[in-house]
């Protein structure tokens, strides 16, 4: 289970780096946070899991989406 979660996190991380659309990258980041929260819970650290789920999937996604609102969706050329 731990290995599956780690592989998924790695795959989503690579997708975040290579994806051209910023919004897709942010959603992948928030999915990484959810998966790591699950991982922390499996590894008997529920306090960290709550923090990771609330900060990673909630607040930081809001901040990233707020920033993306002020960018343009398409490249200039």
């Amino acid at each position: 289970m731990t290995i599956i979660l780690l592989v998924l996190i790695l795959g989503l991380g690579i997708y975040t780096l290579v994806s051209k659309d910023l919004l897709h990258g942010v959603i992948a980041l928030s999915a990484i946070s959810l998966l790591s929260a699950l991982l922390f819970y499996i590894l008997h650290a529920p306090d960290v899991a709550i923090t990771e789920a609330a900060v990673g999937a909630g607040v930081s996604t809001i901040i990233f989406v707020w920033i993306i609102r002020h960018t343009e969706r398409k490249d200039q050329q």
């Binding site: 529920p46 306090d47 899991a49 709550i50 923090t51 609330a54 900060v55 909630g58 607040v59 809001i62």
Partner: peptide
Amino acid sequence: SPGGGFQGGVVVASGIV
């Protein structure tokens, strides 16, 4: 139970948003 001021505070902030 697991949790505390910081964790609860961040969840409250999500609720406010």
